[in-house]
Design a binder for these strands. Structure first.
Length: 493
RNA sequence: GGCAUCGUGGCCGAGUGGCUAGGCACAGCUCUGCAAAAGCUUGUACAGCGGUUCGAAUCCGCUCGAUGCCUCCA
């Protein structure tokens, strides 16, 4: 099945600043690269939002029937803390602090990264390459850039010559900056004597004797510049030009700008057709960041062990909360917002669970085909998950009406409804029904159903003291009874 | 200082020239032994000021405020 032939997908391209119809280089195939994390500490929730946004995009492409090669790297080579010569790389710094090998740091936090993303139900990418595994490829690109005259070598380091590059190319086209402005407005930074211009960036840095992560190169022992690894790995696995490059908004400049420059300088091709940027997650109105203290770790949300939120929230609730905002908008995390999302999430999941037991009738009271297309239209409009979710709630409303016997649905439409719900909620949005998934849920269901039976007997005998006691005490345990036309059901909150 | 983004009803959050998502909260009603759940109904909100237009939350200008990038960051 190739639904993409029926759907016209439009996506926001940061390079042009416009929404454009998505045209892959090769029909039916999508190549997508997303800048992954630097693994020097636990992944924080802001990181997760970005990767979740692209996970949702990955999932939608797959749902549309595309064959997607999704590459997301792991940055495991340490990069400089700052531009000064005494700058330390983050991984080495952490290694020194914890008295372990840099690669132990990398391993530990790579595992944490994978575990956390798995809890949030992110699919693994097709390829997850590491920077240290592609040193040779990076060196080859530096050679090409040097050959083309867009870089210069000095004291065992190699720098990209931005000013020279800008004479024949457009440095700043992605971020909307002009080199002249940058030159005029450069802040005074210490110790940049090696570079011809402050705008130049490192392709290769000479390793000082105390620097642990180092590799041999034609220019001596050193390590690659930060921007280079993405160019090397995206080119290797997706080609010199590929469909989509994604990442957080904060990488737009300079990181992605430099990637464009490196690719154009080395092979002459503009590397990416569609640049996608996911916006920031803020906490208390400020950007979440590892380098400041303004952050919360996913596990602290799942466990409730934090002093920001009033209770613990399931990963799926967090995911749902994030998907209720558009990926290009700034989203602010707060306790109230999370509580509101949690309730909505449960309502949605209750609706999904009800579909199977819905009675069927002679007609369907709503136009399921046009409703389905509305769901697609939402996603086709730059992956508008908030709108999709609003349509899903429309669906839930109909489900509840059918359940109460106020509307009807035909047998065929019921099957369609279930298929659409399942496709969008579980496949595209990647939500999980995390209620009642315990191993003992069969036992639990039996017990609760017994209590429901006893309560209804008490009610029939007008023994309301007993019936209310059963109801209220179950409620206190997080089991909510729901009296409907055809008997009582329950849900676990 | 430069560049960029944003400011939507009690809260969160879509929309982006006329037909004004959705969730949560609140109120009324239906249902109920009472509730809860579910359904129905109600909210004319778009920072401020000026302009363009038959018509603007949506376009333009200014002001104010917030945030991001300009240095490692998703």
């Amino acid at each position: 099945m190739q639904p993409f032939k029926q759907q016209t997908l439009r996506i926001s391209n940061s390079l042009t600043g416009k929404k454009e119809v998505f045209q892959p280089l090769k029909e039916g195939y999508v190549g997508m690269y997303v800048c992954g994390p630097t693994v020097y500490s636990n992944v924080h929730l802001g990181n997760c939002r970005t990767f979740m946004s692209f996970d949702m995009i990955f999932r939608y492409f797959k749902h549309l029937g595309y064959k997607v090669r999704y590459v997301r790297n792991i940055t495991d080579a340490g990069h400089l803390e700052n531009d000064a010569d005494d700058g330390e790389d983050k991984i080495a710094k952490k290694a020194k602090l914890e008295q372990i090998e840099p690669m132990e740091v990398v391993q530990r936090y790579t595992v944490d990264f994978h575990e956390t993303l798995q809890k949030l139900n992110l699919l693994p990418p097709s390829i997850e390459p590491t920077a240290t595994g592609h040193i040779i490829e990076q060196i080859e690109i530096i050679k090409e850039i040097l050959d083309k005259g867009f870089a210069y070598q000095i004291n065992g380091s190699v720098y990209f010559d931005v000013v020279h590059f800008n004479k024949t190319h457009d440095y700043g086209k992605l971020s909307g900056r002009k080199l002249e402005d940058m030159i005029t407005n450069t802040r005074a930074l210490a110790a940049q004597d090696e570079k011809r211009n402050p705008q130049d960036f490192a392709l290769w840095k000479k390793a000082e004797p105390q620097h642990i992560m180092r590799w041999p190169s034609p220019w001596g022992d050193g390590f690659p510049g930060w921007h280079l690894e993405c160019t090397a790995m995206s080119t290797k696995y997706l080609g010199e030009t590929f469909d989509i490059h994604g990442g957080g908004m904060d990488l737009k400049f300079p990181h992605h700008e430099c990637e464009i420059a490196q690719a154009e300088a080395s092979n002459g091709n503009s590397p990416v057709n569609y640049w996608l940027h996911a916006n920031m997650l803020t906490l208390n109105g400020k950007k979440m960041s590892k380098s400041t203290d303004n952050n919360i770790y996913p596990n602290e949300i799942f466990s409730g062990e934090n002093n920001i939120l009033s209770k613990a929230f399931q990963p799926s609730v967090v995911r749902f909360f994030m998907l209720q905002a558009h990926y290009t908008s700034i989203l602010d995390l707060s306790n109230d917002a999370l509580l509101a999302s949690e309730k909505g999430y449960y309502r949605l999941m209750d609706g999904v669970r009800l579909i199977g037991d819905l009675p069927t009738g002679a007609i369907t009271h709503f136009d399921i085909t046009s409703w389905q297309q509305k769901c697609y239209d939402a996603m086709n409009d730059d992956f508008n998950t908030p709108i999709l979710i609003s349509h899903l709630f429309e669906g839930v409303k109909h489900i509840n009406l059918i359940k109460e016997g106020r509307e009807q649905i035909t047998v065929e439409d019921k099957v369609t409804l279930k298929t659409i719900f399942s496709a969008f909620i579980f496949d595209v949005l990647g939500l999980e029904d995390q209620q009642g998934t315990d191993n003992d849920s069969d036992t639990l269901h039996g017990v609760v159903n017994l209590l429901i039976h006893l309560r209804n007997q008490a009610r029939a005998n007008k023994d309301y003291a007993t019936s209310d006691q059963i109801r209220d005490e179950l409620m206190a345990m997080g089991i909510q009874l729901k009296d409907g036309k055809d008997g009582t059901t329950f849900s676990l909150n």
